[in-house]
């Protein structure tokens, strides 16, 4: 049976793995925001350097990160090309109909390209070093302030955790149903669009029913073990801040400092 790993978590124990998921999530979000502070070649170079240092700190192969960027490479190029052809200003090198290539366009296309790639790379650093459930826990922590305005943060977190937990289960079930229907002569790879769309019903309907049954079973099991909402519950996975979070915070502060010094005002 093929077991998929949800998300792209790869086990390891380098520096980045030792960080608290909350720290990682927070720094990742801040890093992405910080990218927009960069506005000249020096600042872009600095932030790229910092991003690559973070990648090196994960201790994972370059391939992992390339795999993260690969699915979006088309989108990145497309956005860059839009910048390249439609941005006007500065010296115009080439002009035809509504398209033009100008010095502003070139520079902006490169910036967009770098920005985009950095955002993906830094999110990959987080997703490959943090287990999905840890990310869910970190999100819960991050959303905590919303409790003040009566957002049921614990419940949202529970929903996310359960959803993540059942992804592999549903995947196995889908595979089993597909195999059962194939054994009854169903063909999922053949025929035109309509025929293929029709072929989905024999998978989807049993899958829906299975999900509902699983949900009912799970809720019964939770109730019979005394679950009464998430008020005042202790955690199984306790998150602990460590010195590595301080290190990364210092790293981040240094980055912001450098960017503030070198950016054009």
């Amino acid at each position: 049976m093929s077991k998929i790993i949800i998300g792209r978590y790869i086990p390891g124990d380098s520096l980045v793995y030792k960080m608290d998921p909350r720290g990682k999530l927070l720094i990742t979000i801040l890093f992405i925001l910080t990218i927009f502070l960069a506005n000249n070649p020096i600042t872009y170079a600095i932030i790229t350097l910092f991003c690559f240092l973070a990648i090196i700190a994960t201790g994972l192969k370059a391939r992992v990160f390339w795999n993260g960027v690969k699915p979006l490479i088309g989108l990145i190029f497309f956005t860059s090309l839009l910048q390249l052809f439609f941005m006007t200003g500065g010296k115009v090198f080439w002009h035809w109909w509504i398209f033009s290539i100008s010095s502003y366009g070139i520079v902006n296309a490169i910036y967009i390209f770098v920005r985009f790639t950095l955002i993906i790379l830094i999110s990959t650093v987080m997703t490959v070093t943090t287990m999905p459930l840890e990310i869910a826990d970190a999100m819960e922590w991050l959303l905590k302030p919303l409790k003040v305005v009566k957002v049921p943060v614990d419940k949202i977190a529970l929903v996310i955790s359960i959803a993540l937990r059942f992804v592999p289960t549903l995947f196995d079930e889908t595979l089993k149903i597909m195999n059962a229907q194939r054994s009854r002569g169903a063909d999922f790879n053949d025929g035109g669009l309509i025929k293929r769309a029709k072929a989905i019903a024999p998978i989807l309907i049993p899958l829906f029913i299975h999900s509902l049954e699983t949900a009912i079973d799970l809720s019964t099991a939770m109730e019979s073990r005394g679950y009464r909402g998430s008020e005042g519950r202790t955690k199984y996975r306790v998150l602990n801040w460590s010195k590595y979070d301080l290190i990364s915070l210092a790293y981040f502060v240094l980055l912001v400092g450098l960017l503030l010094i070198f950016r054009t005002h």
């Binding site: 149903i177 059962a180 229907q181 054994s183 309907i205 049993p206 029913i209």
Partner: peptide, 17 residues
Amino acid sequence: LRKEVGLVFQFPESQLF
């Protein structure tokens, strides 16, 4: 082949749709 070799999976009721 699939006509000639019939497979009944475990808990086959999950194939009903």
